[in-house]
Design a protein around this nucleic acid. Structure first.
Lengths: 165, 165
DNA sequence: CAAGAGGGGTTATGAAATAACATGCCAAGA
DNA sequence: TCTTGGCATGTTATTTCATAACCCCTCTTG
């Protein structure tokens, strides 16, 4: 984290409340459908990430878990995050060593992120890296792509505006 | 690092000696041309990464620096790596928290990596992520991309062969 | 009800990265 | 020449991120 705040998700303001509930309901539905166990800790972590609407480090999440009465040792957070990430409810931002709730919950997608280097805001979008030069190189080399990490670093619209003032 | 070894660079065997010297000479030339200072530590770190031909963590590099008579505290390695990465002589693999020597030294390129999840071998190729869906999303959002991280995780040809045996 | 898997809790440790401060070198300008 | 400032290096200490290993509980299943 570059400052005393966590990175925002998305660059546009929006009404946020329904979004959280809706995402939780969707997650519960998918877990039920797929036989996954959205246990209290896991649900809480997802809820926290959805509410904060920011990329949070595992230890920030841990603090929030403690406040909520859960265990406060690192493995508690990491295990919940591992589960959520494995099933695509959250994504890890490698660049920040932090986690964000997925904003495209229903789809099997290959996520890509835009990360503002000034304010650490993060926006998620989709990508198809395997269709371009990377995919061609992988085929040529005989490399089987299973997952891709695509993270763009730059300046978000908000910070660009501030700079132009 | 998944095992007691560092990830190999590239999936194909090749004669490696000229490659190291050549890359060092090229780096020196570029530093001279651009007024950059390829100091002994920096040169040594680049040389180590070229020689090992693997992705090495900062602490592995630090051990090698110590053996070579340089300072052995983390900032020594990190500062050299920062310099080398800033000027594209090496790249950081976010997925592995490790560094590799650039294998396309002359070009201003947007690197992409293929990382084997079994043996941690790393191969570098080029990508143009900003030309696809990501670029479109960035333009739509008003996000200015400055740098992209593209890392594909999967199975390298060598490990795929072993699995089929 | 035993057996076993999976989840969550703990302690402890390992690994990655940086903050803050001190020293030495060298080049530009007084 | 002196000295001032920038930059690289070195050190100590600390912070941040992540996992190993172990215990116990609960649920399921035979």
């Amino acid at each position: 984290m570059s400052a005393g705040h966590a990175p925002l998700i998305g660059f546009e303001k929006h009404d946020h409340k329904a979004c959280v509930t809706q995402a939780l309901v969707a997650a519960e539905a998918r877990c039920a459908a797929e036989g996954l166990r959205l246990t209290p800790v896991r649900r809480k972590v997802l809820e926290l990430l959805l509410q904060k609407h920011r990329a949070l480090g595992a230890y920030a999440i841990l603090d929030l878990l403690r406040d909520a009465g859960f265990g406060s040792q690192p493995p508690v957070a990491y295990r919940a995050l591992d589960f959520l990430a494995e099933h695509r409810f959250v994504h890890k931002i490698e660049r920040l060593n932090a986690f964000v709730a997925c904003t495209h919950p229903d789809e099997t997608h290959s996520p890509a992120f835009m990360i503002c280097r000034l304010c650490d805001a993060v926006a998620e979008t989709k990508s198809s890296p395997a269709k371009g030069a990377l995919g061609a190189a992988a085929r040529a080399a005989g490399f089987q792509i299973e997952k891709t990490v695509v993270e763009a670093e730059g300046i978000c619209p908000s910070c660009a505006d501030k700079a132009n003032t």
